[in-house]
Design a protein around this nucleic acid. Structure first.
Length: 1038
RNA sequence: GGGGCUGUAGCUCAGUCGGUUAGAGCGCGUCCCUGAUAAGGACGAGGUCGAUGGUUCGAUUCCAUUCAGCCCCA
């Protein structure tokens, strides 16, 4: 017996009940043990950074990380879902710095690295709790108890091992490179950190055109820079080999100015006087006086170099080179043996090499002072505000500088071909990422800057000898213990504790200590396939059977983040991709398509939706509304709309079923023969076809297609099957109907389970009360014998015909309670509707008969249109002519010819054509009269002529409705029996009496009489008009 | 400057391996139903599928250019 169900759907309450049940029955764990020994379907959790509360965009990714594992579990796979938390890195440090009110590394060191890192650790733990709560509430099944934490010693030890493997292969080196550098955070940023949203911002700042007086010549170069602060580090100027340079009179009477011809007017104005031209080659090798003499430099520097990269797109066509502050500068200067002048410290402040007014200041803040110094020395040609996109620190938002600093690298660029090869084997969803955003990124791969001069991270496991400088890479705690000569099993593998471990140098008598930096946190997350299992120190078998992943899923910003670090670490170490399928979601935006941000105040807190609408509403919205590859607008009205439409319709339908199944005492049978009723056959066909579609969709990571198929099915079920079948439930107690609907609802709940795990579990539990959660069921097999193409297409036609019929009734202003003698339906050629289908149309349209005809000559005309798909390839260029000729043909002739099984012959121009039935389409056209409506090949005409019999029947139906309405007002129960006395006007006595038996049955009367109406009224009741007759229905409980 | 995505009804979005009649929901208008009822449903209006050019018998769909928005890179 089914539990009664409220027609009102309270998702939040329902979800809490289901969550409790999952908890007490341990359903998630059981869904795993159930599949033990079955094939693995491997999922990797991309660890969220635990440095803040999760937002609605995180929910999106988490839901997609949930649906496919749920689906594959039901498909019989063993899908372990180990959670993970990304614990290290600058975001966490910045968070803690904020809490402590710090603004840089010196304060941290003063505070103590041990204490600082302890705070980082507890900050992570705090936020992980938020994440766990949300993960559970949205119905995401993830093993958070067994989650990997990148801060754990085991995890770090594997990271060391992976790093050491690269080291062994020669893929790790320490280089000197110009990197985007944040002085505040005291660290370089990797290129994928630069890829974080908000890193590039448009800024307007002064750019300067500076005079570089050429030595032993009588002219000055005009050199352009957008970073005046780099001028003290200038060592060279570059000119382009193909660029023509001109010599221009200085309007202020100084020495002549030299710059690119194409830029002369833009820089100096239209009135310039050009007094000569100079080749780049003639400039090359000349020396000049540099703008500032603060930094010592040998006499061979400050030369003009000819270099290809110089352009005349902007600037002056002459480029200032400061190798310490530009990667191109460094590359160009290196072959000339030019020095790297670096008067900037690790805080991005000028060092003491500069005069007092500059030293100790953030370099970018000295631009104005440097410019005025140049003005005083009459070196400025022009200052111009310049707007360009400039990189900022993605966490502290301060402008970065390009700065030469020692950095550890992984030689990813040497493995570019491997990375590209492996990428070819990955299925990207959407597909364009593969060769687009991600493929392009791999093509342009540069070595991965791995080191961070910070505190809270996996320490780089390299020990360097103080004396000889020899580096040794440590691959494990055991190795470190052995080299240090003491047991270090309990050592916290973080700074400052690892820093204190010294080992003897293997090459000399010196002592080695760990190099200072920690690893990029992306290296941690990229290490997770092995590190989550502490491979190779443990779980070797398990790792082997869980690599690579079948499925990972993150938002698109991870192309250069986790998607890359995973591929890079694992390709370099294991030689192959760690994932086969990757679902790549777009971003969440607000109602207006704007990015959500705290400053705009348009953030949606997931909890506010979960607490008011429920997780299921959010889930269904995320899956069913719009493609996951396009930015998704999230706002409450949209969620309500979607969930009302689908979830509430489903619930209503379910509640309807349970209500009548309970009334009828229906219990489902496992051995019931499929019903032969046409509606039952039809909805079974629809359901199994949908199952087929949903299965295929989820197999190919297309949740949207699956959701749409389910959406259509629910509409079919509610608006056609239930609508048409209602009397079979409440009047006929039709077992076959109950059985069919039970089967369909069960199938729907089952295939909905991965999408909406709460409501589906609840429905399934009530429908099949066998103590087994829907999530422990096998994904159902499609019953191919249930799928009936012919029936589905007939029913589709039937529904189209009823639409036309309703439209015709509406046009004629005839209500549907009034029966009509017949409807004439024009069907497309070859369409035959079986009697039962026809009968459904008759009842729905309330007509006594449907007359299917092949022509409605006289009522409408036909237009003959080529079947373009067939005739196009056959006729080619002749088609437009044929189309025109066919438009002139009498459609009735064509129909007649074809119905005789002959081809329709036509002479067009001087050519003879024959058109078979497949070559042409016959379209009904024009309204012949009021009650006829046509659409394409179909038309319905209603016979509007009424006789007394039809009128009487219509009247009876009106009476039934009136009486039932009254029952409801009196709050009678559906099954209450009544006595009925009908007082009706003189003219209505006969019609009412004629159908009294029908009326009696319909209103559940035990007795009924018809009497002429009197003027008396019964207390509280008055007579009313029904179908033009005055009536007074007196009812009472029997 | 380069790469990628998006542009379809007032709004949110599907769809079209090229076929001449482009769909849904919401909203709007007009109604219906009253045994799913503090529910449900129908019908209707509304679109030159961002623009231009090309390929084709035929383009919203393919190609090129272009405009706008978003994302990424430099």
């Amino acid at each position: 017996m089914f539990q009664p169900v409220s027609p009102q759907l309270d998702l939040v309450a329902l979800e809490e009940t289901v969550l409790d049940r999952w908890r007490s029955d341990d359903v998630f764990a059981r869904s795993l043990t159930l599949r033990e020994g079955q094939p693995e379907w491997v999922f990797y959790e991309g660890p969220p950074t635990a440095n803040g509360k999760p937002g609605v965009h995180h929910v999106w990714a988490r839901l997609f990380k949930d649906i496919y594992p749920r689906f594959h579990t039901m498909r019989g796979k063993h899908v372990i879902r180990k959670g993970g938390w990304d614990c290290h890195g600058l975001p966490v440090e910045v968070q803690v710095e904020k809490e402590l009110g710090f603004s840089g590394k010196p304060q941290i060191i003063e505070y103590g690295i041990a204490e600082f890192n302890a705070r980082c650790r507890s900050s992570v733990q705090r936020h992980v709790e938020d994440w766990q709560a949300l993960t559970s509430r949205i119905g995401m099944w993830l093993d958070t108890d067994g989650a990997y934490w990148t801060l754990s010693n085991e995890f770090v030890e594997t990271v060391w091992w992976l790093f050491s493997e690269m080291w062994k292969n020669g893929d790790i080196y320490e280089g000197f490179k110009v990197v985007p550098y944040c002085g505040r955070c005291g660290t370089a940023l990797s290129s994928h950190e630069l890829a974080q949203p908000g890193a590039y911002q448009d800024v307007t700042e002064p750019s300067v055109y500076v005079r570089f007086p050429v030595i032993d010549r009588d002219f000055d170069l005009v050199v352009w820079t957008t970073t005046p602060w780099t001028l003290p580090a200038n060592v060279a100027a570059a000119v382009g080999p193909e660029i023509e340079y001109v010599r221009v009179r200085d309007p202020l009477g100084g020495r002549d100015l030299v710059l690119g011809r194409d830029r002369a007017q833009a820089v100096l104005g239209d009135d310039i006087i050009i007094v000569g031209t100079i080749n780049a080659a003639d400039l090359g090798g000349l020396r000049y006086e540099r703008p500032f003499d603060f930094v010592e430099i040998d006499a061979t520097a400050n030369i003009i170099i000819v270099a290809d990269f110089v352009t005349v797109e902007d600037g002056s066509g002459i480029v200032h080179l400061a190798p310490a502050f530009g990667e191109i500068d460094r590359e160009v200067c290196e072959p000339y043996g030019l020095p790297v002048l670096n008067p900037v410290d690790e805080n991005a402040h000028f060092t003491d090499v500069l005069p007092t007014q500059y030293r100790g200041r953030f370099v970018k803040d000295t631009d104005a002072d440097l410019i005025s110094a140049l003005e005083q020395s009459q070196r400025i040609v022009r200052v111009q505000q310049y707007t360009h996109s400039y990189p900022h620190c993605w966490r502290c938002d301060r402008p970065l500088i390009y700065w030469a600093k020692p950095t550890w690298f992984a030689r990813t660029s040497e493995h570019r071909d491997d990375l590209l090869r492996e990428n070819e084997t990955i299925n990207w969803f959407p597909g364009h990422i593969k060769h687009g955003r991600f493929g392009n990124w791999l093509e342009g791969n540069v070595d991965w800057a791995l080191s961070r001069d910070r505190f809270w991270g996996s320490p780089i496991p390299i020990w360097r000898c103080n004396d000889c400088g020899h580096d040794e890479c440590i691959a494990s705690v055991a190795a470190l213990s052995e080299r240090a000569g003491r047991e270090l099993t309990d050592l916290d593998l973080h700074r400052p504790y690892v820093d204190e471990i010294r080992i003897p140098c293997s090459q000399c008598s010196g002592t080695a200590r760990r190099v200072e930096p920690v690893l990029d946190a992306w290296f941690d997350s990229g290490s997770m396939p092995a590190a989550q299992l502490h491979y190779p120190f443990e779980n070797v078998e398990q790792f082997n059977s869980h690599f690579p992943a079948d499925f990972i899923c993150e938002a698109i910003d991870q192309t250069r983040g986790w998607f890359y670090s995973l591929l890079a670490v694992n390709t370099l170490v294991f030689g192959k991709t760690p994932y086969r399928n990757v679902v790549c979601l777009a971003h969440i935006v607000d109602q207006d398509g704007k990015k959500m941000s705290k400053t705009k105040g348009n953030i949606i807190d997931p909890w506010s939706i979960l607490n008011t609408r429920g997780a299921e509403a959010l889930r269904w919205y995320m899956f069913s509304s719009g493609s996951p590859w396009t930015p998704k607008r999230v706002f409450e009205d949209a969620i309500d709309e979607t969930s009302n439409r689908f979830l509430r319709t489903l619930w209503n339908t379910y509640s309807f079923f349970v209500t009548y199944a309970a009334l009828d005492g229906f219990t489902p049978s496992n051995h019931a023969e499929p019903s032969t009723h046409v509606l039952d056959q039809w909805i079974r066909s629809r359901t199994h076809r949908t199952l087929d579609t949903v299965t295929g969709a989820l197999e190919s990571f297309d949740a949207l297609a699956g959701a749409q198929a389910l959406d259509t099915l629910i509409d079919d079920l509610s608006n056609w099957y239930v609508r048409r079948s209602r009397p079979r439930f409440w009047k006929a107690s039709d077992r076959a109907a109950h059985q069919t609907m039970h089967e369909c609802l069960t199938l729907i709940a089952t295939m909905l389970a991965p999408f909406c795990p709460f409501i589906s579990d609840e429905i399934d539990k009530n429908l099949n009360n066998d103590g087994i959660s829907v999530h422990l069921r096998d994904w159902p097999a499609v019953d191919q014998t249930a799928i009936n193409d012919a029936l589905e297409s007939e029913m589709a036609i039937a529904r189209q015909l009823t639409t036309l019929g309703r439209s015709a009734r509406a046009n004629a202003k005839i209500g549907v309670r009034q029966p009509l003698r017949k409807a004439i339906a024009l069907l497309a050629r070859d369409v035959v509707l079986r009697d039962e289908v026809q009968r459904e149309i008759e009842i729905e349209l309330n007509v006594k008969a449907i007359e299917a005809v092949e022509n409605l000559d006289g009522l409408l005309s036909y237009r003959i249109v080529p079947n373009f798909k067939v005739l196009g390839p056959k006729l080619g260029k002749l088609l437009p002519e044929v189309k025109a000729a066919l438009a002139e043909v009498d459609g009735a002739d064509v129909r007649a010819t074809h119905s005789q099984g002959k081809a329709f012959a036509l002479r067009i121009g001087d050519q003879d054509f024959e058109f078979g039935p497949d070559d042409l389409e016959v379209r009904a056209e024009q309204h012949g009269e009021l009650a006829l409506v046509q659409d394409g090949g179909y038309a319905v005409a209603l016979d509007l002529e009424l006789n007394d019999e039809l009128r009487a029947e219509g009247f009876a139906r009106e009476l039934v409705r009136h009486i039932n309405d009254k029952r409801k007002h009196l709050d009678y129960a559906i099954s209450d029996r009544i006595t009925l006395r009908l007082e009706v006007g003189e003219a209505a006595v006969a019609p009412a009496t004629l159908h009294l038996e029908y009326i009696t049955t319909e209103v559940l009367a035990t007795s009924a009489i018809v009497v002429p109406i009197t003027n008396e009224t019964i207390e509280g009741e008055t007579s009313t008009m029904v179908a033009g007759h005055q009536i007074h229905a007196v009812i009472a409980l029997a």
